[in-house]
């Protein structure tokens, strides 16, 4: 039973990280209808900026995380301005290829500067809490707490502020949003900034219990895609619920089925779901 609860905790950790990355992806998809293949690279750049600020500059963990969020948010906005904005009327295949171009570029730049070696970010929170038979590393609790706090803040921002509401309005109905005078450029830039910051924070939270390397974004990106397909592309609660489903499936599957193939579990789920219901689990109607 303890083992089971331990795996549930692991699943919650993974799920909250995946959820944060998927949230950014689904927000961008909701606004521009672009599957942003470069999102995983933004996640990776976030981890490296955090690594740079913390290990090479010797800054505090939280300052490093804020720096990562700011840098990646800026980078994300730049991608929108320079790449996705000029392509807004192009056939959809072009956005995807351009996003892949950004992904390859960012990875190559990081690899040129830091090399392909695995790196570690030390965590300032090394305590391990014990609760009976359970072991709770502080960093994991921080991830779960941080991720859910961030999701809550995002929810409040989207529902209670004017700028947040413009994002929702544009995701719901583009033409309608234009009609009531919403500035599409501002909303798009805002969305990309939020998505980038979420990815960078997720990476900074997760990096201390994981490794930092140029290809670290691949699997996370693919799983985030699986999640937003599960949860319905563009749906915010869907991304959070989907993140938890994949997190639990991976933790429990990795423990009870096979740890070698735990990374395949998410994709097998995807294949099964899409074979049965080609539009995703929670989507209604079109697409």
């Amino acid at each position: 039973m303890e083992q089971f609860i331990q795996q549930i905790l692991n699943g919650l950790t993974l799920g909250s990280i995946y959820g944060l990355v998927a949230l950014g992806l689904t927000l961008v998809y909701g606004i521009l209808h672009v599957p942003n293949f470069a999102h995983g690279a933004l996640y990776m750049v976030g981890a490296y900026v955090c690594y740079f600020a913390m290990v090479e500059l010797g800054l505090n963990y939280w300052v490093a995380m804020a720096a990562a969020a700011a840098v990646v948010a800026l980078l994300s906005v730049l991608c929108e301005r320079l790449v996705f904005h000029p392509l807004r009327h192009a056939p959809p295949i072009h956005d995807k290829i351009a996003a892949i171009g950004i992904l390859l570029f960012l990875e190559a730049v990081v690899q040129m500067h830091w090399g392909a070696d695995f790196r570690r970010i030390p965590t300032p929170y090394t305590e391990i809490l014990r609760l009976g038979e359970l072991t709770l590393p502080a960093q994991r609790l921080l991830i779960i707490g941080g991720a859910f706090a961030l999701m809550g803040a995002l929810h409040l921002y989207l529902k209670k502020t004017m700028t947040g509401l413009t994002i929702i309005a544009m995701a719901q109905n583009r033409e309608g949003a234009f009609l009531v005078g919403i500035d599409a450029n501002r909303v798009a830039m805002m969305t990309f900034a939020i998505a980038g910051a979420l990815a960078a924070i997720a990476a900074s939270l997760f990096a201390p219990i994981n490794l930092v390397y140029p290809a670290m974004g691949h699997l996370v990106l693919l799983k985030a895609f699986v999640i937003i397909i599960l949860g319905g592309m563009g749906s915010i609660p869907g991304a959070i619920i989907g993140g938890l489903i994949i997190g639990f499936a991976e933790a429990l599957g990795g423990f009870y089925i096979s740890s070698t193939y735990k990374d395949v579990i998410a994709f097998v789920l995807l294949v099964v779901i899409l074979s049965i219901k080609p539009t995703g689990l929670f989507t209604k109607g079109v697409r």
Partner: peptide
Amino acid sequence: VVSLRLKEHYFAIFTLSVGYIIYLLIDK
């Protein structure tokens, strides 16, 4: 047969996953 029931983005994402599954299987 499975992937072509999907359109546009879903197809691209699905095939990306298939590519990754092939890679993981070869590796493991």
